[in-house]
């Protein structure tokens, strides 16, 4: 069994003159729930579509569950579930008819899972797709993706535009599947609150490339807010500045540490994951393509 669920190496995708992805290298281990965050147009959807085999990269390579995605790789298709906001439901169908259709076209379909999940969501098998709310349609679409029992789920903003209750129900359904089957999930989201609650791996994208990716816990552990008086503010070696704020009294930096800070002149505070994400997004926005050199240059 491969221990890497999604591996991209120098992945690039060009649409005409525009680079949707540039030099993307990332390795997401199996069993993780990985969040893909970043502004619209950062390349999240393109990365997911390439991983699902729906789009071919212009250069670089991608492997999912140890294989190369693509239309001809049927064995891999059954092991990977992909869902975007198109939500492929047939409006005239009843939920049970959708399920029967899916059962006939998916060799790994598990009808028991499908029934259990919609029952839990309070949706009847007799309900017609047109009669469902937007939230319920999203829930049925996810149920259908989950009932294929994929090893890897690629979800493009699965909870976007849902009301708070519908999104909670949907995310709990997703987490139930993870609890029962140890499914690997890679999902894109704009809701930073979801990252801390359901994700344990984080990939931050900005300007068509990846500016940060690692275990969420490691990311939080290795970043600290450091404050000091400007006259004493000299950062020790091995500390990279992600963001800097200055007041007349204080200089405050969000620092990436490679080892515990021994220097007592700095006041230390633990950043929230939202603060870390925002700092990397600002870093990517202020110096597109130069994020890594900005970090390397700090001392």
């Amino acid at each position: 069994m491969s221990s890497v669920a999604l591996e991209a190496t120098h992945l690039a995708k060009r649409f005409g003159r525009r680079w949707a992805l540039r030099d993307c290298t990332v390795s997401i281990p199996t069993g993780r729930v990985a969040a893909l965050v970043g502004p619209n147009g950062a390349g999240k959807s393109t990365l997911l579509r390439i991983a699902a085999g729906l789009t071919r990269p212009s250069s670089g390579s991608v492997h999912v569950l140890g294989g190369a995605p693509g239309g001809d790789n049927v064995e891999l298709l059954t092991r990977v579930g992909y869902l975007d906001q198109e939500r492929p439901l047939y409006r005239g169908f009843r939920v049970e008819e959708m399920f029967r259709f899916a059962a006939g076209t998916n060799p790994t379909w598990d009808m028991d899972t499908a029934h259990r999940y919609v029952e839990r969501l309070g949706i009847s098998l007799r309900d017609r797709v047109d009669g469902l709310s937007g939230g319920q349609r999203a829930q049925v679409a996810l149920t259908m993706t989950l009932a294929k029992l994929p090893e890897l789920l690629l979800l493009d903003e699965p909870a976007a535009a849902l009301d708070p209750v519908a999104r909670e129900d949907l995310l709990r359904l997703l987490m139930s599947q993870v609890a029962e089957r140890a499914t690997t999930v890679v999902l894109s989201t704009h809701a930073l609150g979801d990252v801390a609650s359901i994700c344990d791996y984080l990939v931050v994208m900005s300007h068509s490339t990846i500016v940060l990716s690692d275990e969420l816990e490691f990311i939080v552990e290795s970043h600290r807010w450091l404050s000091a008086h400007p006259s004493t503010a000299t950062l020790p070696d091995g500390v990279a500045v992600v963001e800097e704020r200055e007041s007349s009294r204080d200089v405050t930096v969000l620092a990436r540490l490679t080892e515990p800070l021994e220097d007592e002149t700095w006041r230390v505070a633990v950043p929230t994951i939202d603060e870390i994400i925002m700092a990397y997004l600002r870093l990517g926005a202020s110096s597109p393509g130069a994020s890594s050199s900005a970090l390397d240059g700090a001392s």
Binding site: V33, L171, M175, S197
Partner: peptide, 8 residues
């Protein structure tokens, strides 16, 4: 995970 929206 049915009580709280949380990663198992």
């Amino acid at each position: 995970v049915t009580q709280v929206t949380i990663n198992p």
